[in-house]
């Protein structure tokens, strides 16, 4: 992965980001040494199960852990500015303006007491010196662009008067109202029905092209990731365990966890399989991440590493052209397993 200086290599550059929370039960290593870069106009999908640290990462980039108990280290560069060491005030000025977020549940992310228009106007006027009337025109314009019918009337509706899909559209309008360079969508369609999900995914794809922002989409749904992402980062136990282009991760995955995710998922685009191929066990607690490779207690190939899996943390190493994998197995062996054992199982079983 190319990591440049101060964002020159990418609009967003995250380097060795760690976010730890001290608790009574121990230190929660929610994010542990995460690095990636992202250009404007590109989409990064972050995939992982619950407790893998994907949402904490997004809140960390937005600076929403500042002032809490979190211990944050590493660097986050956005367009030449470093955010980890920046003051909470400085980050707040960027939030909404240069970076914005779309949350999973628009009903709880929007204030029920204010109209949708009011909330968009407020966000817009904090960052732009414009009159209320101009901001309102902008809000109506944005609502129209995200596909809300009769935006001039709907702008005065309260969130509860919108349906789930429309609320998510309104939230996207709010997030895009200041034309942010970075947009983070945390499970943007998980709360929606499948037909509405398809509408929102189409909308996000179209708007990203139009606004040319960098988009991070965080989800557990590999289908959603495949629809939108250029690059994919797979997280497990607070660490990136595989990173590559969408093609790398879907057609040439090299980490046993990624294989497990692909095998766990029933797929409509293939003939039905007799049985799913689940991963044994359950995801680790972030207080008590297994030593060595965090995945080793669930890994079917653990014994092939001669004990290194349980003692030594594998490095995130490049296997080919920007495709990074954190695994002790030698590259040739991983490829042989994928080609001979895993891939045929996924396709036929």
């Amino acid at each position: 992965m190319s990591v440049g200086n101060g964002g020159s290599a990418g609009h967003l550059a995250v380097r060795d980001l760690s976010i730890h929370f001290p608790t009574d039960d121990g230190l929660v290593r929610a994010v542990d040494g995460l690095s990636f870069t992202l250009e404007r106009g590109k989409t990064l999908g972050i995939v992982g199960e619950s407790g893998s640290g994907k949402s904490v990462t997004s809140l960390g980039i937005l600076g929403l852990h500042k002032g809490g108990h979190a211990r944050i280290s590493g660097e986050i560069w956005l367009d030449g500015e470093e955010l980890v060491s920046a003051s909470a005030d400085a980050v707040r000025k960027l939030r909404g303006k240069k970076m914005a977020m779309i949350f999973q549940d628009p009903l709880s992310a929007m204030h029920p007491y204010y109209t949708v228009g009011h909330q968009i106007v407020e966000a817009y006027r904090i960052h732009n010196q414009v009159s209320k009337a101009a901001a309102r025109r902008h809000a109506i314009d944005m609502l129209g662009r995200v596909g809300i019918p009769e935006p001039a009337q709907r702008v005065d509706n309260y969130p509860h008067e919108f349906s789930g899909g429309m609320r998510q559209r309104a939230m996207i309008a709010m997030a895009l109202s200041c034309d942010p360079e970075l947009l983070i969508a945390d499970e943007p369609t998980t709360a929606l029905d499948v037909t509405v999900q398809a509408q929102i995914l189409d909308l996000m794809r179209d708007l990203q092209r139009e606004f040319d922002s960098a988009l991070i989409i965080i989800t557990h749904d590999l289908g959603v990731v495949a629809e939108l992402s250029d690059d994919i980062l797979v997280m497990y136990g607070g660490k990136c365990i595989e990173y590559g282009t969408a093609d790398d991760v879907f057609y040439r995955p090299e980490h046993p966890y990624t294989w497990g995710l692909l095998g766990s998922m029933p797929r409509l685009d293939r003939a039905p399989t007799e049985r799913l191929l689940p991963i044994k066990g359950s995801p680790p607690s972030l207080i008590n991440v297994p030593p060595g490779c965090a995945f080793h207690p669930r890994c079917p190939y653990e014994e092939r590493t001669e004990g290194r899996a349980s003692t030594e943390v594998p490095g995130l190493l490049e296997t080919e052209g920007g495709h990074l994998v954190r695994c002790h197995l030698p590259r040739e062996e991983r490829r042989a397993i994928w080609e001979n054992d895993v891939k045929p199982m996924l396709e036929t079983t």
Binding site: G223, V224, A226, E227, A246, D247, F250, Y251, M265
Partner: peptide, 14 residues
């Protein structure tokens, strides 16, 4: 419509 709305985990397919 339901079937065609399901996101397919195949980046080439999109």
């Amino acid at each position: 419509a339901l079937l065609s709305a399901v996101p397919i985990p195949d980046p080439k397919g999109r």
